[in-house]
Nucleic acid binder design. Structure first.
Lengths: 184, 184
DNA sequence: ATATGTGAATAGGTTCACAGCC
DNA sequence: GGCTGTGAACCTATTCACATAT
């Protein structure tokens, strides 16, 4: 909407786009303040700015990726993050020079380089795409390096300090969930 | 545990592995029946069988993938689904013969082949890894072909009939969520 | 007239506390 | 003694209904 120069938007239109109910959307927004104009709706630019501020994506967020296998490599070449304010600035792997079936422009380092680069570039977030057996060790390593947010693709529950946020993406569970619902 | 021949397991051990509280796990299991033995715990084999039955993964579930780009190709070569009872049996793309940077053993068809293959192999689930702009059209196509479960990776809310289950995986949103929590 | 903001009502999910059973 | 199963209590989230503002 911002790109298309649309000036204002109603909670109804936003809710439809997001797949939720208008009241839900309004209630949620007001947890962060009052941004709308009664009788008119929300100013698109203001709202976008406010959301970026709240999420912390106003400036480009640097992110690292750990585990350059199948999935990791795919995410490295995925160009959908920049638009949302994220940039994968470095990748790490136990075997950084292993031959890979695709080129990419993001440098791949050994695990021993984690601490220095995270500190130098003041990085807070890591994407974990390592095999399940290596995931806890990798998580410990990124936490030790100073990472406080982990997006974990390994299919297990990671142990991490309270101060570290772990979000899990588990593709097998998503399929199992679907499988349950497609049964007649 | 089944692979390791462990005969029984307590709700406490299971809960720890799953990252939830023991009461939660017990309450959830009882929605499907009573499977435990008081004073002893759950029989690992029985429980695994019950879960497979409930999820509908007792026999290998065929799945199709639509959109063989970056992410789609990575998922095609991801060998983590078989273990959980899923098999990607066919892939579809608007340009099936487009040159791709990796070989894979799963056949790639044009979108016009959807209906016949879904019907022939009695497929219920589809993974959607197409660009956002093409997602709704692709969703319509798979629904028309008879699919009733969609795992959608495109960053938008799909319109689909009531009888079709849509699960969304949105990597940008996962990162935004993390971003919010890593702010000091 | 139109659309937000919000207290109150409702619904849904989690945890407690302990009875029941091995 | 140990661990499940579960009603009741509690907590959180969603929806309603409407006052409020443009």
């Amino acid at each position: 909407m911002k790109a298309n120069g649309i000036p204002t938007v109603s909670s109804e239109a936003l809710a439809k786009a997001a797949g939720v109910k208008p009241t839900q959307l309004r209630k949620d927004l007001t947890y962060f303040g009052q941004f709308g104009t009664r009788g008119l709706g929300y100013n698109v630019n203001e709202l976008a700015q406010m959301i970026s501020d709240v999420l912390g994506t106003t400036s480009l967020q640097p992110v690292i990726l750990v585990g350059v296998g199948n999935l990791g490599l795919a995410l490295l070449s995925y160009r959908g993050f920049e638009k949302e304010g994220f940039e994968i600035v470095a990748a790490f792997d136990a075997d950084p020079s292993r031959k890979r079936e695709r080129n990419n422009t993001i440098p791949i380092y050994g695990m021993d380089a984690l601490g220095a680069i995270v500190k130098e570039k003041n990085i807070r977030m890591a994407i974990l795409t390592v095999p399940a057996a290596a995931a806890q060790e990798a998580a410990n390593a990124v936490v030790a390096a100073g990472i406080t947010g982990i997006l974990n693709f390994a299919p297990l529950a990671l142990d991490a300090p309270e101060a570290v946020t772990v979000n899990n993406v588990n593709l097998a569970i998503e399929l199992e969930n679907l499988s349950y619902f497609v049964q007649r």
